[in-house]
Amino acid sequence: MTYQPTTYYNSRRQQNWSRNQNTARFSSAVKLGPVAHTVLVVLMVTVLGLIYLTQATRTTSYDYQSQAIESQIADLSTQKSDLEVENARLTSLNNVKNSNVAKAMTTPSNVQYVQQ
């Protein structure tokens, strides 16, 4: 009785064992010296700083807009309150009693009730 040798199975993981490693190396023809590196870093920091300042300023400008709107709301609220006070004054008993309509009213001489 003879035995057939077992077929070896290479997993995909084993096949791509070095997948995450660079398999090709490119060497650039441009060489950056220490000064160029320094300049690039400074430039990057400057750009990032400008971006930060822009965003921070934009937030602050929203604060001013928000403050302006809140101020407008407060003004409108004050106007509303003042109008409510004026309305209450105009509809107060004394004003109603002294109105031309009230002055033209007469006391009923006879009152009768209808039973439902």
Partner: peptide, 9 residues
């Protein structure tokens, strides 16, 4: 309800 006491700015 009718107001008797209110707040005025």
């Amino acid at each position: 309800p009718v107001p008797l006491v209110m707040n005025e700015t």
